[in-house]
């Protein structure tokens, strides 16, 4: 049989989120610690240019640069862009201008936000100053944003040893991205069949192998698998391991057996947990069947069927 008319597209949220722990190295450590202390540091290149924010390596010569200087908290906008709809994570929640600002005493510009009443109040060349965050931890967000500031540039870069008490050596950079995952035609059909506690694979029209779960393509022939084939429910343990270490986020008592199971009619094994038998009695060739629990999308585990073990030659190609 061939695939019926396409079922409704499955979708689910996929959140990718982690608090990354970043070590800084000496230059970035000095800069971010300085921000905590309301001091802005730059770094001087061999030809005397002052880079703010300070880079660790000269972008022209690639040489390590470590000569720190202090620059002003006031500066000049070198370009800007009005952001009428701030996005999550951005420095201000109300409309603001993105700006590149050359701080007084610096030769390069720093990117940040400018709090201004509207785009008509912003222009290239305008004078601005740092608005410090009330609570500062040693991070680029210790600069809350820039704000307009009418005063001539006076400050020059002055040498700084970069030393502060209790220097910040690392930051925690939390990052969350939200995706909407959709598994595609082939897996959607498989997932929908699971709801009826049926395991439906797909056969390659070229090599005739049955793929479970189907992935849309026969990976050896590079063609779509279209013919749906119900497999199982019983199958054979082709190989396994005994898990003695509790994995994070898995509420399964150890030890337990994690096995490759070739369902009857499938041409490769899928993975599952073996239950209903002491862990140390599981063996290659054991015949098993799925055990479903209420509300579970996948079988909770597989248990012995009581049939005689399969012969090694019968499954050794399916491991």
């Amino acid at each position: 049989m061939t695939a019926a008319s396409p079922p409704e597209v499955l979708r689910a949220p996929l959140v990718v989120e982690f608090p990354f722990t970043r070590s800084l190295g000496p230059v970035q450590s000095a800069f971010l610690t300085g921000l905590r202390e309301r001091v802005v540091l730059g770094v001087k290149t061999a030809d005397g240019k002052v880079m703010v924010p300070p880079v660790e390596y000269d972008p022209v010569t690639a040489e390590e640069i470590r000569e720190l200087v202090e620059v002003g908290a006031t500066g000049t906008v070198t370009t800007w862009a009005w952001n009428g709809s701030p996005r999550p994570g951005q420095p201000l929640g109300t409309p603001f201008a993105w700006v590149l600002v050359r701080l007084d005493g610096a030769d390069t510009a720093i990117l940040h936000a400018l709090d201004a009443p509207g785009p008509e109040a912003v222009r290239t060349g305008m004078r601005v100053r740092i608005r410090w965050a009330g609570e500062r931890t040693g991070a680029i967000t210790d600069i809350a944003c820039f704000e307009p500031h009418d005063a001539e540039a006076t400050e020059q870069a002055t040498p700084h040893d970069g030393q502060f008490a209790d220097a910040v050596t690392g930051i925690v950079a939390a990052a969350r991205l939200d995706y909407t995952y959709s598994p595609g035609r082939s897996q959607t059909a498989y997932i929908n069949a699971l709801a009826d506690r049926r395991t439906v694979g797909e056969r390659c029209p070229s090599c005739h192998k049955v793929y479970v779960p189907p992935r849309g393509a026969c990976p050896t022939c590079g063609v779509a698998t279209t013919d749906q084939v119900e497999v199982g429910p019983a199958g054979t343990v082709t190989t396994y391991c005994i898990v003695n270490i509790k994995a994070k986020n898995l509420d399964i008592e150890v030890p337990y057996v994690y096995a490759h199971i070739a369902l009857d009619g499938a041409d490769l094994a899928l993975h599952g947990r073996i239950g209903g038998i002491p862990y140390d009695q599981v063996r290659m060739g054991l015949r098993v069947e799925p055990v479903w629990t209420e509300g579970g999308r996948h079988p909770d585990h597989y248990r012995p069927t009581g049939e005689p073990d399969a012969d090694y030659d019968a499954y050794k190609e399916l491991i």
Partner: peptide
């Protein structure tokens, strides 16, 4: 092991992916 919706999670941690292949080698 970023969770992929609808897919059965890997039930065994890093080594669990490799250990069954090792057992298959020993058997073979």
């Amino acid at each position: 092991s970023l969770p992929v919706p609808f897919q059965q999670p890997l039930l065994a941690g890093a080594g669990g992916f490799f250990a069954p292949h090792v057992r298959a080698y020993m058997r073979r």
